[in-house]
């Protein structure tokens, strides 16, 4: 879970940085997209790795979820365990929702069937076409916010899983998780917001 999580986190950061080129104008973004598409075998190898990681990540989550469900067959009448934060409590929801969002996201910008006005290769145009619809833009912003929460819990959790902890430097784990989740949340949400407000058109 943690190993695939790191790889997927790395992808999200790279993906976001690539997409932020939308602020450098149409030419830059379309050129970047062209560059990604240039080497087909590499592209598909990359996609396979991602698909593999997503599959293992989901498989691990389901295995843990089933095990944890069976660990308490009789539920408490009143259960208010302290210390739970919002991100931790919602992992079981943010995960599947983000997974569904990824499918929609691929249909929107890669396959194009969910895009209101899809033109192959014209990424900038497709993004603007999609996000000009307030409903789609809001769905994206909500999904990216959930992704940020999911990453916050996932990021600091992986330090626990790997046993990376230190009495003096332990606080860095939460700080890093906050830093990256805010960065990713802000970066990804900014794009639909920029289109919606007419900053990018």
């Amino acid at each position: 879970m943690a190993v695939t999580g790191i790889i997927l986190f790395g992808f999200v950061v790279g993906h976001m940085l690539g997409n932020l080129q939308i602020y450098l104008g149409q030419e830059q973004l379309d050129h970047y997209a062209e560059l990604l598409q240039a080497n087909k075998p590499f592209l598909w190898a990359f996609r396979s790795v991602l698909l593999f990681c997503v599959s293992v990540h989901i498989w691990a989550a389901v295995v843990i979820w089933l095990r944890n469900r069976s660990a308490r067959p009789v539920k408490y009448k009143m259960f208010q365990p302290p210390g739970l934060d919002y991100a931790a409590r919602t992992m079981v929801w943010s995960g599947p929702i983000v997974a569904l969002f990824i499918v929609y996201h691929i249909l929107d910008f890669t396959v194009g069937t969910a895009n209101p006005d899809f033109i192959k290769g014209e990424v900038y145009h497709n993004v603007v076409a999609s996000f000009s619809n307030p409903v789609i833009a809001l769905v994206y912003m909500a999904a990216c916010l959930l992704l940020a929460f999911h990453l916050y819990h996932g990021l600091w959790s992986l330090f626990q899983t790997f046993g990376w902890d230190h009495p003096r430097f332990g606080w860095i784990r939460r700080a890093l998780a906050i830093f990256f989740s805010v960065l990713i949340g802000a970066g990804t949400i900014s794009i639909p917001l920029a289109v919606l407000t007419g900053f990018v058109r």
Binding site: I64, P81, G83, L84, Q160, G163, P167
Partner: peptide, 27 residues
Amino acid sequence: GACTNYTSCEAVCPKEISISGIARMNK
């Protein structure tokens, strides 16, 4: 069950034992 880092264990522990023990166990 398996740990998913809710941290409610250390919050209720009468001896206030830290989840750093879980990290050490994992390591």
